[in-house]
Simulated scan of single mutants.
Amino acid sequence: MHVLVTGSAGFVGFHVARRLLSEGHAVTGFDDLNGYYDVALKAARHAVLGRMPGFRPHVAALEDMAALEAAANEAAPDIIIHLAAQAGVRHSLEQPRAYVSSNLVGTFNVLELARQRRPQHLLIASTSSVYGANTAMPFAERDRTDHPLTLYAATKKATEDMAHSYAHLWKVPTTAFRFFTVYGPWGRPDMAYYKFVRAAFAGEPIEVYGHGRMSRDFTFIDDLVEAVRRLIDRAPVEGAPVIEDDSLSPAAPYRVVNMGGGQPVPLLSYIDAIERAVGRPIERRLIPMQKGDVEATTASPTLLRALIGYVPTTPVEVGVARFVDWYKDYNAIA
């Protein structure tokens, strides 16, 4: 199988590409290695992939359609997995134009590429942030997503809508993933858990938003990758029988799928797990919630389970310990 993975130097893209390469598939990676966070970390991820047979990297921006087409011409992909995006809820308040460029223009280019190449399955990353102002939980795929709270969420909702229109018009089987607070080794330094661990080893206090009253449906990266890998083989079929809680479109070979286990954890309990993993206390400064944030997220995993017979289950104690082990190794901490 030949797979084109956008965002291959990113957190999720790196892990997905590594899994596919480990199975003997050919992976063409596409990433611009932008400076939103430490470029050295992104380069280190690509270096790991580069030591595996079957990996071919292309360094360019999604907005560069010629470069994207060149990568696809080389790869002749059976599958396209679109994971590249400008990430970060809070960063979208400071640099909104980057989200329009990468998440809208870049995704449009990927959709145009899929129209040209007609892959067996197009898989696209979305986010739990599209549930926006919804308060009834667990969040289910058929819930309305009409009230985004940040531009980041709005661009991801637009990603889903654009992908649906292309699936309808050009009959490209498409699955959109809604990720729920993914964490683990090789993670993003802008994520709260990464900042907490870094502060713990530096002996610095941490800022805990929402006065610590928040909770999240944390998803360990290995669980997410397992779910993505299984969903590759479950391309939507227009007009197929609808399964339990199915989000399959009535007008296209298209569905959205929550990628979460449905087991929310209080943020303070998550920080407790970090303290135990690093073996030292962390001073906590409780502060108000930031603009665009929500108090809680919980995924309904019913559809994911029905599609692939699997949902994320790794306890945060285990996942956090795995991340701390990686962090110590990556940063040469004894």
Results as ranks from 00 to 15, higher is better:
residue 314 T to V: 08
residue 146 D to L: 11
residue 124 I to V: 11
residue 44 A to E: 05
residue 75 A to Y: 06
residue 133 A to Q: 08
residue 27 V to H: 10
residue 94 E to A: 11
residue 311 V to H: 02
residue 95 Q to H: 11
residue 185 P to D: 04
residue 24 G to I: 09
residue 144 R to E: 01
residue 125 A to Y: 02
residue 148 P to L: 07
residue 126 S to I: 05
residue 304 L to K: 02
residue 72 A to S: 14
residue 56 R to N: 09
residue 303 L to Q: 07
residue 137 M to W: 07
residue 38 D to E: 06
residue 243 I to N: 07
residue 229 R to F: 14
residue 290 Q to V: 09
residue 6 T to Y: 05
residue 126 S to N: 10
residue 114 A to W: 00
residue 224 L to F: 11
residue 155 T to W: 01
residue 150 T to K: 08
residue 213 R to K: 12
residue 314 T to Y: 03
residue 124 I to F: 04
residue 243 I to D: 02
residue 205 P to H: 02
residue 247 S to V: 01
residue 334 A to M: 14
residue 334 A to V: 12
residue 206 I to D: 03
residue 331 N to R: 13
residue 111 L to D: 01
residue 166 Y to H: 09
residue 60 A to R: 04
residue 316 V to W: 01
residue 204 E to M: 12
residue 328 K to D: 04
residue 55 F to L: 11
residue 172 V to P: 04
residue 200 A to L: 09
residue 168 H to R: 13
residue 292 G to F: 05
residue 50 G to D: 05
residue 48 V to M: 13
residue 188 R to D: 15
residue 37 Y to G: 05
residue 94 E to R: 10
residue 259 M to I: 10
residue 153 A to R: 01
residue 182 V to R: 09
residue 290 Q to H: 14
residue 190 D to W: 00
residue 27 V to F: 12
residue 131 Y to N: 07
residue 207 E to K: 05
residue 143 D to N: 11
residue 98 A to Y: 02
